[in-house]
Design a protein around this nucleic acid. Structure first.
Lengths: 234, 234
DNA sequence: CCCTTGCAAAGATCAGATCATTTGCGGCAG
DNA sequence: CTGCCGCAAATGATCTGATCTTTGCAAGGG
């Protein structure tokens, strides 16, 4: 997902962001801009600019005579790609992936349904080709290439939904899929049923069958959840 | 939803944000910090800080020797509460509400299902009370009080899901509900069926019946969509 | 035409200063 | 003792001037 700015601004922002996410800077903690500038050996504007961004993310609040107070997590803008990034890079990676997975259970079937109404001919082609690639690479046990095809499939589907908010979830899905593949939560050979279901989604989309697309997508997600439970030895 | 900072920073940020959203500053357009500072009659750091926030929202990119370029909308972080706010306050209010409604179709049934697993006793009480309030105020035709109870219901349900991302959607739902009430898209007396369905969700949640909660929530949303189509004369 | 070099434009950062707001403390009055 | 008011100090908000860094563009040469 997102990376932040190069330069001092970006590094101070990332450093503070990570400390917030790891509770090194716990809610209620008060810093001053002066102290931040000193600690990171940067000038005050650099500290200010980083704090401005964190403020816009609901993570801190600035008050005169008080300083910069860390806000409760319930105020944080949890959809911010920077925050998602920091959480994924922190000890709470699993928790973030779980949250994202639960969220995905909601939005992706709806995206499939909307895609069945709105997909372009080209998008239908890309979906069909990606499903085919998944079959080929799944058979060959090439998990990395399977992942690539899987990501292309979902990104295209989310774009085909014609809703910019759903489309922007492509990064989330990519993280979930990559997380599964890269943390040994993926069977050595993907379940053929999963591949069939992807194909079923692609078919339903090009046939304009909303209900079928949605149902198949739901099954894909349920299958992935079961497969992950198996890999976790539950 | 969110309001931005007081002071010059907040006003410059809002002004620029609105101009971006309304395409007054169209993608590809290039500004300089110098020009922004001059135009808004503020010092350079104020302009810089506003641009920093817009940058972190994916709306602009700064390059030396070029200036500040407006990025394509596909780069914008569409879940940012500030951006949602600006869009809702702009001529594209309807489009934003539609996007949010489509999104809601995805996440709220999942929230209901998770709430059935995770709700506290107190949350169950609040849900029951809110559903009761909706009945009372709906009967009396007091749409404003009905809206309040409706918002409390959904906010509580989203919190009961125990997923911080779903919980943060409470603002979205409130906007959708308020948008309906305040733009004459709400029948003068709410459909008793809608109220029954809210009660069904509340019941399913306290009984821990995930599937029933999810199904009833789905019906609530579908009913709301039909009701809105009726009001729009479709 | 392509590559290299140099210059200038504009962001990034630093430093110093002033202004504005708010909080905390002390003193006074009831 | 408690509450209210005033003042000073703390810290963010903003301004101004300067320097550093990066990079885009133009010109020249092969």
């Amino acid at each position: 997902m997102t990376a932040s700015s190069p330069g001092l601004h970006g590094s101070v922002l990332d450093a503070l962001g990570m400390r917030l996410v790891t509770d090194d800077l716990a809610p209620g903690r008060v810093l001053t801009l002066e102290a931040i500038a000193r600690e990171y050996a940067v000038s005050r504007p650099v500290a200010r600019e980083a704090i401005r961004v964190l403020q816009s993310m609901g993570m801190v609040a600035s008050r005169r005579r008080v300083g910069v107070t860390v806000l409760p997590r319930s105020d944080w803008h949890v959809f911010d790609p920077l925050l998602i990034r920091w959480r994924l890079d922190s000890p709470e990676r699993s928790a973030q992936l779980l949250s994202l997975s639960e969220l995905r259970r909601g939005f992706e079937p709806v995206a499939a349904s909307l895609a069945a109404e709105r997909a372009t001919a080209e998008q239908c082609s890309v979906l069909a080709a990606a499903a085919s690639d998944m079959l080929v690479h799944g058979r060959a046990g090439d998990l990395e290439a399977y992942l690539d095809a899987d990501v292309v499939f979902h990104r295209t589907l989310l774009a085909a939904a014609g809703n910019e908010m759903l489309r922007s979830m492509a990064g989330v899905v990519a993280e979930i899929l990559a997380g599964r593949t890269h943390h040994g939560l993926m069977p050595s050979r993907p379940n053929p049923r999963a591949i069939e279901l992807h194909d079923a989604v692609a078919r339903a989309v090009r046939e304009g069958d909303c209900a079928a697309a949605e149902a198949a997508m739901r099954e894909i997600i349920d299958e992935a959840a079961s497969a992950m439970r198996v890999e976790l030895g539950e």
